[in-house]
Write a protein that binds this DNA or RNA. Structure first.
Lengths: 151, 151
DNA sequence: ATTTGTGCAAATCGTTTGCATCTGA
DNA sequence: TCAGATGCAAACGATTTGCACAAAT
């Protein structure tokens, strides 16, 4: 009986349930490593570069037995983005995609499948950039290569 | 009295109320030159290159005493886009902007003002484009230069 | 006369917010 | 303890749709 109580207490507080690096990453970003953030972070960052929508991530989480609310998924994605752990990609005006690759790179967008893919690194050079209008500076240059299937 | 009746009848059917070229443009695109389409077309195409949202165009129309419904504005914008008279620009995932310049060119986006501006022609070269994945071809390359005001 | 377009209001979709409740430090 | 997180449901803004009515050919 005592053991049961102890186990449950331990399980809820200090169980070894995830990469310690993720904990650090969140802490470093000023985010408390909560259950949901850790779970979502694990889903996002443990499989190489990904491009997810809030909806998709929510489904994945639920399937992985991590019952988060959609609202929390949105909150988390935005917090991660502000913290520099994610990058938002604007491809078409409806869904927002979040990219786990925050380095400087560009994207393919496959319209038929509504899928975003990284352009292999070091490809694409944008040159001959115009002067920005007076008083403005360039914050970022986004290139979207829209693909369709060949006939 | 008779003249009033005639005037009103004529006004509703064959009055010379607009560029004949626009009529042809619509016809050529397989679109019947209706009052609303002509009015919206006139607003869109008579002032050089523009980047409008549905909402903004709707307001402009209403102010210009062309009472169209917002639904019709959306329908019209999409019909024009499919017909190649407009081009949809995806800058951020919320509003869609329609560009009256359908030629190959790129855009500035001023985040603070939510405004889209054409990049002066012939600027920006995108080189070293990657091979698209097997079975795919490049439909279009969009470059968005995001600007922020200098401090 | 027939086909096509239009207006309106309601429906939908992605996303955000308010607030009561829970949880991590 | 107690600031900060979370869940839920309701609010939201942009866009779409269904259907009765109106206009174009």
């Amino acid at each position: 009986m005592l053991s049961i109580i102890m186990a449950s207490t331990i399980g809820h507080t200090h169980a070894d349930n995830g990469s310690p690096d993720l904990t650090q990453r969140l802490r470093g970003a000023g985010l408390r490593p909560t259950r949901q953030r850790m779970s979502l972070g694990r889903i996002l960052f443990s499989k190489g570069n990904r491009h997810v929508s809030a909806e998709a991530l929510h489904e994945e989480a639920v399937l992985a037995d991590v019952p988060v609310s959609l609202a929390t998924v949105y909150n988390t994605l935005h917090q991660f983005t502000e913290a520099g752990l994610l990058r938002a990609v604007a491809v078409e005006s409806s869904k927002t995609y979040f990219d786990t690759n925050t380095s400087d790179h560009h994207h393919f967008f496959i319209e038929e499948e509504n899928r975003v893919v990284d352009v292999p690194a070091s490809h694409i050079s944008v040159t001959d950039l115009p002067e920005p209008p007076e008083g403005m500076e360039i914050a970022r240059v986004d290139v979207i290569v829209r693909l369709r299937s060949k006939d």
